[in-house]
Amino acid sequence: MATIQVDIVSAEQEIFSGEAEMVFAPAVLGEVGIAPGHTPLVTALAPGEVRVQQKNGEEAGFYVSGGMLEVQPEVVTVLSDTAMRAEDLDEAAVLKAKEEAEQQLHDRDAQIEYATALAQNAEAVAQLQAIRRMRQRNGRG
């Protein structure tokens, strides 16, 4: 029987890669079954289980909390989300990041003293370089 290459990846790691006879995935408009030679398709995934029917008859299941499914006639790619993604959850993360930034922030519109900052930085970097050179001269490090 024909097989189809399946790759399941998340932003953090590769989860599965191998041949399959059939793949089932929880698309947003209902579960889809992908057999080899399926017409090209791109769809968003709902939270659920991606099932991969392997050649030896075994079935492997992977939970995805959402993501994208891309189908080409011989390759299926699941771009899985690892984190729970929902608009309100994302919104909460945004608020948290903003709040953290707003805490203790006194003068938001203050002008940056670029000259001073650059000078301070140049000094710090120069010190480091001097130390490195000194160490090289002493023939160690």
């Binding site: 994302d90 945004v94 990041a97 903003k98 953290e100």
Partner: peptide
Amino acid sequence: AQTTHIGDAPGLDTLIGAIKV
């Protein structure tokens, strides 16, 4: 926006806030 204390192995979820802003 800011995200701190991300640790040694941050997940994508810890970064979403700072990115989405």
